[in-house]
């Protein structure tokens, strides 16, 4: 195991966050604060409590999940795509580091950034709404699991993408709509029965609800189902990454 190489990539990626602090941390915190102002204070004050939880507190897990998913994907996809774009990927491919080690480093860095971001958004939320976390262990577990899973997904997108448009395509046009429609801002029980049924095909529903359960102790779907779904998505991402390792797809001619 080339631990030094893993650490070198991890440090390199974390240093990149330091250079782009405004884009990586400040920007999502400001946009989250705006969500609280608009949905929590302005609109939320007119919406009834859901399962005994005020609307402002209800949307916190969904908001964190929204940022967690999009930033995990963006961080990891950009991390591996940028060396491809500027040509420095040659160094990674010629170094004595395995694909698995490179993945651990890139995904680890992207997930770390996302978890830090999630914690900052949580702290920001605490300034706007009264917050309590009923199951802190599961909250941390869902946070880390989701960050790792979607960083892996982002890593795959970064390898697949051959242009910046493709890089933005999945987070903007797939993940963000799925998150908005995945019960981030509402309980799916508020939907008509048909759309409730349709929502169950949206994997983000399970992620948001698992996370929400760890905060409020209630959710639209069972915790076991949420956990199984999260692990299932993780397994799919791992399988795809493993296949890329085997074939060198989009990395080696």
């Amino acid at each position: 195991m080339n631990y030094r190489a893993i650490y070198a990539i991890y440090r390199f990626e974390m240093a990149r966050t330091g250079r782009t602090l405004l884009q990586s941390i400040v920007s999502p915190v400001i946009s989250t604060a705006l969500y609280f102002v608009v949905f929590g204070a302005a609109i939320g004050s007119r919406i009834q409590a859901i399962d005994g939880v005020s609307y402002g507190a209800f949307i916190v897990p969904g908001l964190i999940m929204l940022s967690l998913l999009t930033h995990s994907i963006s961080n990891a996809s950009f991390g591996i795509y940028f060396p491809k774009f500027v040509g420095t990927i040659y160094e990674l491919l010629s170094a004595p580091i395995s694909f698995a080690e490179a993945t651990v480093a890139y995904v680890g860095a992207a997930a770390t950034k996302s978890v830090i971001l999630g914690a900052i958004i949580l702290a920001t939320a605490a300034l706007f709404v009264p917050l309590q976390v009923e199951h802190p262990f599961w909250m941390a577990a869902f946070l880390v699991l989701t960050a790792v899973t979607f960083s892996l997904f982002g890593f795959v997108i970064g390898i697949w993408a051959d242009g910046f448009e493709k890089l933005q395509f999945v987070p903007m046009l797939v993940v963000t709509p799925l998150t908005f429609l995945g019960g981030s801002f509402y309980s799916i029980e508020m939907l008509p029965p048909f759309w409730q049924w349709v929502s169950l095909f949206n994997p983000v529903v399970y992620l948001v609800n698992g996370f929400r359960w760890s905060f409020h102790g209630t959710a639209d779907v069972g915790i076991a189902v949420s956990l199984a779904m999260t692990l299932g998505i993780l397994a799919i991402c791992l399988a795809v990454v493993w296949w890329i390792f085997k074939t060198g797809w989009r990395l080696k001619n």
């Binding site: 030094r4 190489a5 650490y7 990539i9 440090r11 160094e91 170094a95 580091i97």
Partner: peptide, 16 residues
Amino acid sequence: FETVWATVSFSRGLFG
């Protein structure tokens, strides 16, 4: 966007 020192040090780490 990297400095010369950082990028050269990174290469050394990458090779273990």
